[in-house]
Design a protein around this nucleic acid. Structure first.
Lengths: 208, 208
DNA sequence: TTTTATCTGTTGCAATTGCAACAGTCTTTT
DNA sequence: AAAAGACTGTTGCAATTGCAACAGATAAAA
C-alpha cells in the first residue's frame, strides 16, 4: 500500500558500503528465506513479488501472505512456531535486500552510509506493514465469510474504485481471509445472485 | 512481549527539548485517543495499560487489542474505516507519549535530542509490534475455536510455562480470538472434560 | 451491607462453515 | 496440438459456531 519510497535508487550503496547487507536476485519459484531458526534475518523486497507459504501437515501449499515492492519480512518478525513450516517463495523474479537485524543494529551504527539510509526509509516501511497487518486482523475478526469478503472489497474499492482485480487468485483469497475455498466460492455466488457484486474469477465489480 | 526497553528513563527530554511531542497522564477509564480523522497521530504507552475498544452498531463494547508498556498505537497505523468506531481507553493510570508522526519526521529531523532518542528505540518497538500482530494473525487464521485456544495457550506457555494467568478476562479473550464468548466457553469446558487443561476463570494450566 | 452491574458458564437451536468429491476451465508443459 | 496440472465452481452432509436466553458467581458501587 505504501509504494512511494524507492529503495532501488540507492541499491549501489550497500554492496560497496556495508559488508553486513547483501542484495540477492531470485528467479520465480526459488526460496528466498525460511523461518526455521532465528537468525533475526530481515528482508526487504526491492522488486518483484513473493509469497509467504505454509506447508501444512498434509503437505498442502497455503499462501498466507503476499509481498510486493517494499514489503518487509523475515524471521525477526515471527515467533518461530512448532508445527508450521514457513517459506518465502519468489512469485516472479525478485530483488531482495537481506541483512541480519542484529548486525545492522549493533555493529555499524553510525559510520555506515547504508545504515544511515536504512534509518531514513525504515519508518515508512514498518508503519505501512503495521497498517496492513492491522487491516487484516480487522478482516479476520469478522464472524462470517460474507463480512470478510465485503470488508476486503471495501478496502480495495477505496484504492481502486468499484471495479478492480484482486491481488490474489480465488484460492489465495480464501487463504488470506482464512476460510474454506469452496465455502467462500459459495458465498461469492450468493453475493452475485443478490446483485451485490459482479465477479469473473478474480475481477470484481461492486454494485452498491 | 518486548519489555526490555525503558522509555521512561528519558521522559524528561521531550518536554524540554521537543515542542512537537508531549507526555500526558490518563486516569482509569479516560479516553487516550480516537481514530476518527487521520492526523497521523503516534502514541507510545510508557506505563499502565490500555484497551483498543470498538463500539459496534449495537453499542456493545468490544476490546480488540490490549496495550501494555511500550506498546505503540495511533491513527497512523489504521486505515480509518467507515462503520467502526475505535477508541483507546486507559485500563488503569497511564502515561502516554503522543506526537504527530509527520511533525517528528519532517520538522525536527536532526537537531532535536528527542528525535535522536526516538530513532534509537523505535525499531525495537515496531518490530515487537509486528511480531505480535503476526502471531495474532496466525491464531485468527485457524479454523476452529479449539485450535485458536490451544495456539494461544502455546504462545503463552513459551513465556510463562504450563501455568499462567491470561492477560485477558474470558470475555476479552473471546474478542481477541474473534469468536463468540459462549461458544468459546463451551469449547473450554470440553478441553477441561478431556483433560487438556485446567481452568479457573482466567487462570490456565496445561496438562499436556 | 445491600444493591447493582458485570462476568462466567450452560444449553437449545438455527445458521454458517468445513470437508469431500466431482466436473468444467484455464494454464503450462511437453 | 495434446496432455498434465492447477484453479474454479457446485453441492450434500456433518461439524462447528453464533445467537439468545438464563442462572449463578464475582466485583464494584451505593
Amino acid at each position: 500500500m505504501q509504494n512511494d519510497i524507492d529503495i532501488s535508487s540507492f541499491i549501489s550503496d550497500f554492496s560497496t558500503n556495508c559488508s553486513k547487507a547483501q542484495i540477492k536476485t531470485f528467479d520465480k519459484g526459488e526460496t528466498i528465506t525460511t523461518f526455521l531458526v532465528n537468525r533475526n534475518q530481515f528482508c526487504i523486497l526491492i522488486s518483484g513479488s513473493a509469497d509467504l507459504v505454509r506447508y501444512d501437515y498434509n503437505g498442502n501449499r497455503l499462501v498466507s501472505e503476499r509481498f510486493s515492492k517494499n514489503a518487509i519480512f523475515g524471521e525477526i518478525f515471527y515467533q518461530i512456531n512448532t508445527n508450521s513450516e514457513f517459506v518465502v517463495e519468489a512469485k516472479d523474479k525478485c530483488e531482495v535486500l537481506l541483512f541480519s537485524y542484529d548486525d545492522i543494529n549493533e555493529k555499524c551504527k553510525s559510520n555506515c552510509s547504508f545504515h544511515q539510509k536504512l534509518i531514513a526509509f525504515f519508518p515508512d516501511l514498518v508503519i505501512s506493514k503495521i497498517t496492513d497487518l492491522t487491516s487484516r486482523i480487522e478482516l479476520l475478526s469478522r464472524r462470517t465469510t460474507r463480512d470478510k469478503l465485503l470488508g476486503y472489497f471495501n478496502l480495495l474499492s477505496k484504492q481502486y474504485g468499484k471495479h478492480f482485480t484482486l491481488p490474489f487468485s480465488i484460492t489465495e483469497l480464501a487463504n488470506y481471509l482464512a476460510v474454506d475455498r469452496s465455502s467462500m466460492t459459495r458465498e461469492l455466488s450468493i453475493l452475485k445472485k443478490e446483485n451485490f457484486i459482479k465477479q469473473d474469477r478474480n475481477k470484481i465489480t461492486l454494485l452498491y
